[in-house]
């Protein structure tokens, strides 16, 4: 620290920049080794015929785009459709309920008591191990499980309903689990967004005689649009990653008749059977979709340019050009 005699205004000298690089080095090193190299090799494998047939390893032989062609001729599109259906079936109720709860929780005219309690309860499923949760649902909703027992005892059902043998039943359970795991999280995010709106807007609306419905659609919704977009896109990315719940619920089979098989379950099957060429092709398609979504998140978060805001906040002391 020979610099210590330096005066305040000399502090942002170039000498410190090497510390900046040093501090961010571990992150980028770890990213490089554990994410970038694997990503590059994933893309690389996608252009090769490389799989196992019994004990024999076939390839790797370069085959150009053959894996991609095979991918789109396989059931990949069906699994993409499944993933989208499962995602929407979970997301729609989630966003509706979350918006409703966020509006109610922040409406001072409704004196809802125990808000903290409800927040704690509805967020809890988000922390539950998805695979254990799916195992629990499998046990609870099996033909002779407690839910069927209860429904039959109460006279709602005449005989046990085989949830996991019906398309609607199996998909419905996956959607219900996704809904339960995520609506609390979304509610809390939306509440924070609503509470960030200038209260005088609501006061003015109330004075002007707006009904709660009008206030919600004309003020609340437009004001929280950035957060809504963020929730939508991150939920889409989450939906694309859907794996644990359907995998455990159906034991990896996507039953009935692979109607619950998601993209990642398909990828997982290729990884297990060591069909690296096809696994690579699935990964690359997934990567391209996610990259587009990542860009959308980036632009959404940077509407007011975070790094510029930082510079303003730190005044003249910080700013790199």
């Amino acid at each position: 620290m020979e610099k210590k005699k330096g005066k305040m205004n000399k502090i942002k000298s170039v000498d410190y920049s090497k510390w900046g690089y040093l501090f961010i080095l571990p992150f980028f090193l770890a990213f490089f080794i554990f994410q970038l190299i694997p990503l590059v090799s994933t893309v690389y494998y996608s252009f090769f015929e490389y799989y196992r047939s019994g004990l024999k390893v076939i390839g790797p032989t370069p085959v150009g785009l053959a894996n991609y062609k095979a991918l789109f001729e396989s059931d990949f599109l069906k699994y993409t459709g499944n993933t989208i259906i499962l995602w929407i079936a979970g997301f729609l109720p989630q966003i509706v309920i979350s918006l409703l709860l966020a509006a109610w929780f922040t409406d001072l005219r409704l004196k809802i008591k125990g808000k903290q309690f409800f927040k704690v309860v509805i967020y809890m499923p988000n922390l539950i191990m998805a695979s254990a949760f799916a195992m629990l649902f499998f046990a609870l909703f099996s033909a002779n499980g407690p839910v069927n027992h209860a429904l039959v005892n109460m006279g709602i059902l005449k005989e046990p309903f085989r949830f996991l043998s019906s398309v609607a039943g199996a998909r419905g359970l996956v959607a219900l689990m996704n809904f339960l795991m995520w609506f609390g999280n979304t509610t809390i995010l939306l509440m924070a967004a609503v509470m960030g709106i200038n209260p005088s807007l609501f006061e003015a609306a109330e004075l002007d005689g707006c009904t709660p419905t009008q206030t919600f659609f004309k003020i609340t919704l437009p004001m929280i649009r950035p957060i809504l977009v963020y929730v939508l896109i991150t939920s889409m990315i989450g939906g694309l990653q859907m794996f644990d719940v359907p995998q455990i619920l159906t034991n990896g089979k996507g039953t009935p008749d692979r109607t619950v098989t998601t993209i990642i379950m398909y990828l997982n099957n290729h990884l297990y059977s060591k069909n690296y060429g096809m696994a690579g092709a699935v990964s690359v398609v997934l990567f391209i979709i996610c990259a587009i979504l990542c860009l959308l998140v980036y632009f959404n978060l940077n509407k007011d340019d975070t790094i510029n805001a930082t510079r303003k906040h730190r005044g003249k002391k910080g700013g790199a050009k």
Partner: peptide
Amino acid sequence: YSFKFRKAAFIFIMLILVMPTQVSALG
């Protein structure tokens, strides 16, 4: 710290903010 690639590094991390690890699972 202010250094040459500061902004680039920040933008890069923000770009991969929500990238799932599954896409590179094979590699």
